[in-house]
C-alpha cells in the first residue's frame, strides 16, 4: 500500500461503558477499521475514560464486558491511546488505573492531534 493511501483516523471516546452501547459498538468499529491498515489512534475524554479502567466485572449486570478488547487494539493498528489529563484527574484516576498503557496529554494537545486527522469518529 502506498503511504499516500494511509489516512489518519482518530476515535474520540467520550461515553461511559455499559450505561449505553456507544463505547462497545465503537470498539467493534475500530476492529473492522483495523483491516483497512490505516493509522489509527484513540482519545479518551470526559466519561469516556471510564471505559478503559481496570477491574471492570460486568457479570452481575449481565452485560458482556469488553475490557479485554483493549489489549488487542495495538495489533489492529491503534498506535496511540491518549487520555485527557484533566478528565482523568477530575475523576480521581491515575495512569496506572487503565488496562493498557495510555499517553496522558492535555486537552489542547488532543485538539492539536485532532487537527492532523483525515477523520475523527465519536463514540
Amino acid at each position: 500500500m502506498n503511504d499516500d493511501d494511509v489516512k489518519k483516523i482518530m476515535f474520540i471516546m467520550r461515553q461511559a461503558p455499559h450505561g449505553t452501547i456507544y463505547s462497545y459498538e465503537g470498539l467493534e468499529t475500530i476492529l473492522v477499521f483495523g483491516a483497512f491498515e490505516q493509522e489509527m489512534s484513540m482519545a479518551f475524554i470526559g466519561d469516556g475514560i471510564f471505559a478503559a479502567v481496570k477491574g471492570q466485572d460486568t457479570e452481575g449486570i449481565g452485560i458482556k464486558g469488553f475490557i479485554k478488547t483493549y489489549g488487542v487494539l495495538e495489533d489492529y493498528g491503534v498506535d496511540h491511546m491518549y487520555v485527557d489529563k484533566e478528565s482523568m484527574e477530575e475523576r480521581g484516576l491515575t495512569p496506572e488505573d487503565f488496562v493498557v498503557d495510555v499517553e496522558v496529554v492535555s486537552a489542547a494537545e488532543i485538539g492539536r492531534i485532532m487537527e492532523e486527522q483525515h477523520a475523527t469518529i465519536p463514540y
Binding site: K7, I9, T29, V32, A35, F36, Q38, A119
Partner: peptide
C-alpha cells in the same frame, strides 16, 4: 452491510 462500508467511505 458491514462496518467495512463505513471504513471504505470514510477513507
Amino acid at each position: 452491510s458491514g462496518l467495512g462500508q463505513l471504513a471504505d467511505a470514510v477513507i
